[in-house]
């Protein structure tokens, strides 16, 4: 990986963030007059004017945009009209719960998805391979909310083993994590399997064995490390589905995280909170992809370097 490659990727990431922040600003301005949202359609015109002056909404749009950017840079992300406090504070309070859910799900996804995919690839076309893929398709096609409700019916209503929602104990974590892991591990197993299959048929695997390596040695030293490289690239995609799945799953299980906050804030027209969460999601995607790009460039020497033949 050349420094130029890294610089390119970092610049692109920063530009993307700026683009996202700007888009968020524009969309929120287009979505209507915040004064009316907050004070209501039949509010006193004087109160509306006062509100607009108070929040700078009477300024030209360009000035508002610059003001918005400068506020963001200073860490002022607006006021939650609904919770009546700093919006960032409200969001940060929910962040650990979401990170917990995503972290545990991510861990199980990797622990289940990767071995399943590797195993299926190594036993390509065997009945185990076919079963793994069948389960994976099923897991992937099942919507989170359907699986979630099904689990609640089974574990909470019928067997009364687990709480239907909320958080606090590990029992609360079981069903949300299970719901999300099923879909994520299914995708991961598929990616792992195809990455492995691709690598297993590469000529260098044959060379490794011609040198005297046994099959399992060649798999360990050449196939697994090489298959891990394309897998790294899907992590960005993975984070995206994790966030999307989290919004649904948190709502189903009343999990007090960002996903649920997003849904309730949209319903309550709590624009500052929505804005922060959208930016947070976007930035975490950009950051993940930046890390993936840099990691990829580091793992694969062919990336970002010119061929120098003799």
């Amino acid at each position: 990986m050349t420094p130029l490659y890294a610089l390119q990727k970092i610049t692109r990431a920063l530009l993307t963030v700026l683009l996202i922040v700007s888009t968020v600003f524009i969309v929120l301005r287009l979505s209507g007059d915040p004064a009316i949202y907050v004070l209501g359609l039949d509010a006193d015109p004087q109160a509306l004017d006062a509100f607009r002056t108070r929040w700078g909404l009477d300024q030209p749009i360009f000035v508002q945009y610059l003001q918005f950017l400068s506020n963001c840079l200073q860490g002022d992300f607006g006021y939650s009209y609904f919770e009546e406090r700093d919006a960032m504070e409200a969001v940060l309070e929910r962040l650990p719960q979401t990170l917990l859910l995503m972290g545990v799900t991510g861990l199980f996804t990797v622990l289940i998805g990767i071995p399943a995919g590797v195993y299926a690839a190594l036993h390509h076309n065997s009945w185990i391979d076919r079963m793994t893929m069948l389960v994976s398709v099923a897991g992937f096609s099942l919507p989170n909310f359907v699986l979630g409700i099904f689990l609640i019916l089974l574990f909470s209503v019928t067997w009364q083993l687990l709480p239907t929602g909320g958080s606090g104990t590990w029992q609360h974590l079981v069903m949300p994590v299970l719901t999300m892991t099923v879909a994520e591990a299914a995708v991961f197993a598929r990616f792992t399997r195809s990455a492995m299959l691709e690598v297993l048929h590469q000529p260098y695997m044959r060379t490794a064995r011609a040198k005297g390596l046994r099959w399992h040695q060649a798999v360990r030293r050449h196939a697994l490390p090489n298959a891990a490289i394309p897998l790294v690239t899907v992590v960005g995609f993975f984070v995206g589905t994790l966030i999307a799945g989290g919004v649904v799953t948190e709502s189903v299980f009343a999990w007090p995280g960002l996903g649920r906050l997003l849904v309730t804030s949209v319903a309550n027209r709590d624009l500052a909170v929505v804005q922060i969460i959208v930016m947070l999601i976007a930035c975490s995607m950009v950051l993940t992809n930046l890390i993936v790009d840099l990691l990829y460039g580091w793992l694969d020497p062919r990336v970002g370097s010119l061929r120098t033949g003799n």
Partner: peptide
């Protein structure tokens, strides 16, 4: 044994 396409016979990474 040696093979046909030396560019892909070695592990690229």
């Amino acid at each position: 044994m040696i093979f046909q396409d030396p560019m892909s016979t070695l592990n690229p990474v």
